[in-house]
Computed example of a mutant assay.
Amino acid sequence: MAGTAAAASFLRGLAKATAVLGLGASVAGASLYTVDGGERAVIFDRFRGVLPETVGEGTHLLVPWLQKPYIFDIRTRPHTFSSTSGTKDLQMVSLSLRLLSRPDVPSLPTIFTSLGTDYDDKVLPSIGNEVLKAVVAQFNADQLLTERPRVSALVRDALVRRAREFNIVLDDVAITHLAYGAEFSLAVEKKQVAQQEAERSRFLVARAEQERRAAIVRAEGESQAARLISDATAAAGTGLIELRRIEAAKEIAADLSRTPNVAYIPAGDHPNRMLLGLNTTAR
Rank of each mutant, 00 (worst) to 15 (best):
L178A: 03
R164L: 05
T80K: 01
D73I: 08
T80R: 00
T113E: 10
G49D: 12
E247M: 04
T113Q: 03
A263H: 15
E251L: 05
V217C: 01
T34I: 10
A25P: 06
I252D: 10
A253L: 01
S31W: 13
S96M: 02
E147F: 00
G24Q: 13
E209V: 07
K190N: 10
G268E: 10
T54D: 07
A198Q: 15
I216C: 07
R244Y: 12
F44M: 06
S85I: 08
Q196H: 08
G13V: 14
D269C: 04
A19I: 14
L32R: 11
A194I: 04
S82E: 01
L115I: 14
I43E: 04
A17L: 12
Q196N: 07
T18W: 15
D118R: 14
Q192R: 05
D36S: 15
G181V: 13
T18C: 10
L108I: 10
T176V: 02
A30D: 12
K191P: 01
R40D: 03
S185K: 13
V217D: 08
F166L: 04
S257L: 03
A232Q: 05
L154N: 04
G277R: 07
R164S: 06
D142L: 11
G29V: 06
R202L: 12
V136D: 05
I241E: 05
L90P: 00
S107T: 05
G116M: 09
E247W: 00
G13L: 08
D118V: 11
V123F: 00
T280R: 08
P149R: 03
F47Q: 08
A219Q: 13
S9T: 12
A5H: 08
D120Q: 10
R98N: 02
Q210Y: 04
T117G: 04
A28Q: 15
Q67W: 02
E197Y: 02
A158N: 09
T18N: 06
A158Q: 02
L204C: 06
P52L: 07
T113K: 07
E39L: 12
T34N: 08
A153M: 06
